[in-house]
């Protein structure tokens, strides 16, 4: 038998009881996160979990990591600031499709091009769950909701294609219908040295569509590995990502085989370099004194 993980998954489960609707896909996501963190082996006090606002954004509270349930759409800017201030922290970011791709959508390309070492997990349920089932940016065209009584006229955005085209170094997708696969991609995303993105098709049992539930996912999901996809093939990853909303591909779309230096590492390097010629703290005052 393999060696025991030093920190069992239960170590990452907090005392706070989730208030998600029974059956919500987010229960599976938080379980997968406990497992991924257990495999990573960093203790809870070395992990910070930042989220926006939404049902999915409650997730940090259900872990024993440091958590900040921030402002709608602002998880990424806060997480980036935190990572810069304390680069030794393992920083996880999470939220919903609305949080990440409507109100927070403007932050996504910039977080990606800066390439801080963060893992961003989006629980994509194609609806605004917390506010009771309005259209979200990933809702399929024609979806009838409280804000689209006759069916949505808008085409959904494609989160996978968007993050890939912005240059994210690690892009994956999964579903709670495949718990081992979900835990594995979250672990792999955390291990990737740079910005990593995991789109989790996490069903909303209360406002979501029947064909978006776990049972339907079990019949539809197709693993990219079983299709022979090579995650180093960026162009193929782009092509596969165009099927978002039609096919349910699971696994790693893209993993940059040559990860570039992260922003946080470069900042540290520059700080060390400038430190060499910096005026010692006790002499700063002299610079402002005459004579």
């Amino acid at each position: 038998m393999t060696a025991l993980a030093t920190l069992p998954p239960a170590q990452f489960k907090s005392e706070l009881k989730p208030i998600w609707c029974p059956g919500c896909g987010d229960y599976g996501v938080v379980q997968a996160i406990y497992r991924a963190l257990s495999a990573i082996g960093r203790p809870p006090h070395e992990i910070a979990f930042i989220s926006g606002i939404g049902c999915s954004s409650r997730i940090p509270g259900y872990t024993t990591a440091y958590g900040f349930n921030t402002v709608h759409g602002r998880a990424l800017p806060i997480a980036q600031g935190l990572k810069l201030a304390n680069p030794d922290l393992l920083v996880l970011v999470a939220g919903g499709d609305g949080d990440g791709f409507s109100i927070g959508g403007g932050h996504v390309p910039h977080a990606i091009r800066r390439n801080l070492d963060l893992t961003y997990i989006v629980m994509d349920n194609q609806v605004y769950g917390l506010t009771k089932g309005q259209l979200s940016p990933t809702s399929p065209k024609g979806l009838k909701t409280v804000t689209s009584a006759y069916g949505s006229l808008e085409s959904p955005i494609n989160p996978l294609l968007q993050v890939l085209s912005c240059g994210a170094g690690f892009v994956a997708q999964s579903t709670p219908a495949d718990m081992p696969g979900l835990a594995a991609v979250i672990e792999e995303a955390i291990r990737y040295p740079g910005f990593s993105f995991v789109n989790v098709q996490s069903p909303c049992v209360t406002f979501g569509e029947e064909d978006q539930q776990v049972k339907a996912h079990k019949g539809r999901m197709q693993s990219l590995a079983s299709k022979g996809h090579d995650p180093a093939d960026y162009l193929k990853a782009l092509e596969l990502a165009t099927h978002y909303g039609v096919e349910l591909y699971t696994g790693v779309f893209y993993r940059n085989p040559n990860p570039p230096a992260t922003y946080d590492a470069q900042v540290r390097e520059r700080q060390a370099e400038l430190q060499k010629t910096a005026v010692p703290r006790e002499r700063i005052l002299e610079m402002f004194q005459k004579g």
Partner: peptide
Amino acid sequence: PMTVTRAMIFDIEAPEYDEARADM
């Protein structure tokens, strides 16, 4: 000492989360 862990099993006899519903 044990050399197997909970991380090795996924929902063997445990009902999946998807099984519960409000008002069931």
